[in-house]
Design a protein around this nucleic acid. Sequence first.
DNA 1: CGCATATATGATTATATGTTCAAATATCGA
DNA 2: TCGATATTTGAACATATAATCATATATGCG
Lengths: 123, 123
Amino acid sequence: MTCEPGLERDDLDMCETHEVDFRSAEEARASLPDTGYVAEVFRVMGDSTRLSILYLLLKREWCVHDLATILDTSVSNVSHHLRLLRTMRLVKATKVGRRVVYSLDDEHVETLMSEAFKHAAHG
Amino acid sequence: MTCEPGLERDDLDMCETHEVDFRSAEEARASLPDTGYVAEVFRVMGDSTRLSILYLLLKREWCVHDLATILDTSVSNVSHHLRLLRTMRLVKATKVGRRVVYSLDDEHVETLMSEAFKHAAHG
DNA sequence: CGCATATATGATTATATGTTCAAATATCGA
DNA sequence: TCGATATTTGAACATATAATCATATATGCG
């Protein structure tokens, strides 16, 4: 494997001692999508309290007060978490009287969660 | 809706001003699984660098040096992230000469990622 | 209106996390 | 064995985050 012209060797100098050709690396880098958004979704789901909220919303909608009671934490805490979930458009809020009822806003999240919990039960 | 005996009203006092019966809340709480492990998996996947590593490993295995080059970061940084992924058993390491080659160790992760990226492309 | 309920928000704080740097270990080749 | 390469590890630091508290807004009821 030799370094061909046209490719910046300074950027991907994998052909010095590696037998791995740097063209594969170049292709790999090019094929890499923007992971930022997906990572953010995973990060938001990667908290026990928020994941519990999402899990509860799988079956039915809940208002903030009830979520806080079920999860044994403060209304304020739940509200903060819900704001994050709302920002990421994973849940949506509907005002009902003086209450705000939350429900899932993303079908994809349900798929992700059912997959994840399925695997957790398996392992 | 009245509060029946046998259930701790102090714990779930949702029948005071809520029309939501607290038995539903009690059932919801009971149905809630341990979200700790799943949340941890999501959390580990919820970092752009780690998610990129996992994405690259979808196609083929890579050694640490190459991953660092492709991701344009230090070998040390990649190694730290790989340790986390290894601890969670999402990737596995194989020593080849003086190199350590990493590959995916969890079929479930592939499912989760393909789902997530599919949805990202959709939205 | 006045008061209790329901939710949201901003400030604060303790902790967690990602990255970098320096150093240690290990393997290969001359 | 010596030096270069490859990876790991621990310390340090800047930043991010979750939880708490106090407060603000808004709605419903008497």
